[in-house]
Amino acid sequence: MASPEGPGAVTSSVNEPLDLVRLSLNEVVFVKLRGDRELKGRLHAYDSHCNLVLGEVEETIYMVDEEEEGGNGEVRTMKKQSEMLFVRGDSVVLISPQA
């Protein structure tokens, strides 16, 4: 079962969505998660579930202060750092290479 592209053509094409993630290995990525959370960090591992390992991570959490009933709930942000972080894939919404 030789692949149509022949040997050696395997690794550097963008044929499926996860190739975008593969090309970001050892690069800084932006990750949007469920629950109004975002991460920025260096991508060291991923799999098909979008489980991730990120290094030198900054997490941003967006929290709405809902004390005022007028609805102008201000958005507060909380930042956290982590030197090495495993992220479970089912929380992932979007992954973008950081330009």
Partner: peptide, 11 residues
């Protein structure tokens, strides 16, 4: 805006 973006299908 993002240059490229991967979106996980379940969302």
């Amino acid at each position: 805006s993002y240059g490229d973006a991967f979106v996980r299908g379940n969302n």
